[in-house]
Amino acid sequence: DEVRLHVNGHTIEFRGIDEEIFKILEEAAKRGADEEELRRLAEKLLR
Rank of each mutant, 00 (worst) to 15 (best):
16 G>I: 04
40 R>I: 10
45 L>G: 01
26 E>S: 12
35 E>A: 09
34 D>W: 06
22 F>E: 02
14 F>E: 01
5 L>C: 05
41 L>R: 02
4 R>Q: 09
22 F>D: 01
21 I>E: 05
7 V>S: 02
11 T>W: 15
29 A>W: 14
22 F>G: 05
27 E>K: 10
33 A>M: 12
18 D>S: 14
6 H>R: 08
35 E>R: 04
36 E>W: 15
35 E>Q: 07
19 E>V: 11
21 I>M: 15
11 T>A: 06
24 I>L: 12
13 E>V: 15
41 L>N: 00
10 H>Y: 04
19 E>Y: 13
33 A>N: 05
17 I>S: 04
42 A>H: 07
30 K>A: 07
4 R>T: 09
16 G>R: 02
41 L>G: 00
27 E>Q: 12
45 L>Y: 10
16 G>V: 03
44 K>C: 10
27 E>P: 00
14 F>T: 01
16 G>Y: 05
8 N>T: 03
35 E>P: 08
20 E>R: 14
21 I>G: 12
44 K>M: 14
39 R>V: 07
21 I>T: 12
41 L>Q: 02
29 A>G: 05
26 E>G: 06
25 L>I: 06
23 K>R: 13
41 L>T: 05
46 L>H: 04
36 E>A: 13
31 R>P: 00
8 N>G: 07
24 I>P: 00
46 L>N: 05
44 K>D: 07
27 E>W: 15
44 K>N: 06
2 E>W: 14
38 L>N: 00
2 E>M: 13
9 G>Y: 00
42 A>S: 05
6 H>P: 04
35 E>G: 07
32 G>V: 03
35 E>N: 05
34 D>K: 10
23 K>H: 07
22 F>A: 06
40 R>L: 11
1 D>L: 13
11 T>Y: 15
23 K>N: 06
32 G>M: 04
18 D>F: 03
47 R>T: 11
21 I>F: 06
46 L>M: 13
40 R>Y: 12
30 K>I: 11
43 E>S: 14
47 R>G: 08
22 F>K: 07
20 E>S: 12
43 E>P: 00
17 I>F: 04
45 L>N: 01
10 H>F: 09
35 E>M: 09
13 E>Y: 13
18 D>H: 06
23 K>P: 02
32 G>F: 04
14 F>D: 01
43 E>M: 15
21 I>C: 09
3 V>G: 08
30 K>Y: 15
27 E>R: 11
43 E>W: 15
8 N>R: 04
26 E>R: 13
27 E>C: 13
16 G>N: 07
28 A>G: 03
23 K>E: 06
1 D>H: 13
40 R>V: 08
5 L>Y: 00
23 K>S: 08
25 L>D: 00
47 R>W: 13
46 L>T: 10
13 E>S: 10
29 A>H: 06
1 D>M: 14
